[in-house]
Amino acid sequence: MALFLLRRLLAFIPLLLGMSVVVFLILQILPGDPAAIIGGQFATQEDIAEIREDLGLNRPLPVQYATFLRKLVTFDLGTSYATRRPVAEMISRRYPATISLAFAAMAIALTLGTLAGMIAASTRNSAWDLLTMLASQAGISIPGFWLGLLLIYYFSVQLGWFPTSGLSGPRYYVLPALALSVFSMAFIARMTRASLVETLGLDYIRSARAKGLTHNRVVFKHALRNAFIPVITIAGLSFGYLLGGSVVIEAVFNINGLGRLVVDSILSRDYPVIQVSILVLAVNVAAANLVVDVCYALLDPRLRY
């Protein structure tokens, strides 16, 4: 097990390097001039040339990458062009919002999703089943930002139940986490149902049932453990989706997280911030996949290789 973990962790390093190259290279081809943005609408050409010089934008690319990488390794993440604050500080202040929202959404998706899937599977071919599956089809088909707007419209403005903006308390999480989780929830429900249906058809479950165990006991004690392996995969994959979804949901609910930081920094060509914030999101996705692999190995020893 330790060896397996070590191998997985080592495989992580080239992935990180690859990500840093991608992030660095992609940004080199972005059009638009950060110096012009900092200068603002009324800046002169001299002002802009001066700003460009200050930012080191005139140096050759490999030099800029080497600098980028060296600073990355030493956690010296540079200063934002736009706010003049350390990037590390900006990221660390926004990271908790994005991550806690992703976890809240994940928790909602996992609990409601597996629950719906379990109900559907154990009542196969009933109206419940059909309803759950229809709802899950709807869940993966609805645009998340549109759902977010509708939630704000009905639950915040019309009913006044939940606040619309920010994440400053438990109530603030309800709507954005719900809007963010719908896709994953629906997907987890489908996966749970399919996986449970398959497991319930397997020989050892049949024999457990033949031994006279009750339906619920069979479902909960025997089937769930095996059925959850694919569900965990989906949950892991969902995590990446949830972090990506934060880009849009944070805009709708005015949440000061990494997702909005990425969009803002792309729009203002704030290179250091784009680089690091995208990298942080990508590393988190990769880390989630790693955790999934480990869970896998724990649940099913055959998968350790």
Partner: peptide
């Protein structure tokens, strides 16, 4: 496949966002 894995590590919307920012 390393390249594919690398691309899959980025959430799809982020990749798309960067491409649009590049192309207009």
């Amino acid at each position: 496949m390393r390249l594919v894995d690398l691309m899959l590590a980025f959430p799809q919307i982020l990749l798309a966002l960067i491409v649009v920012a590049t192309l207009g």
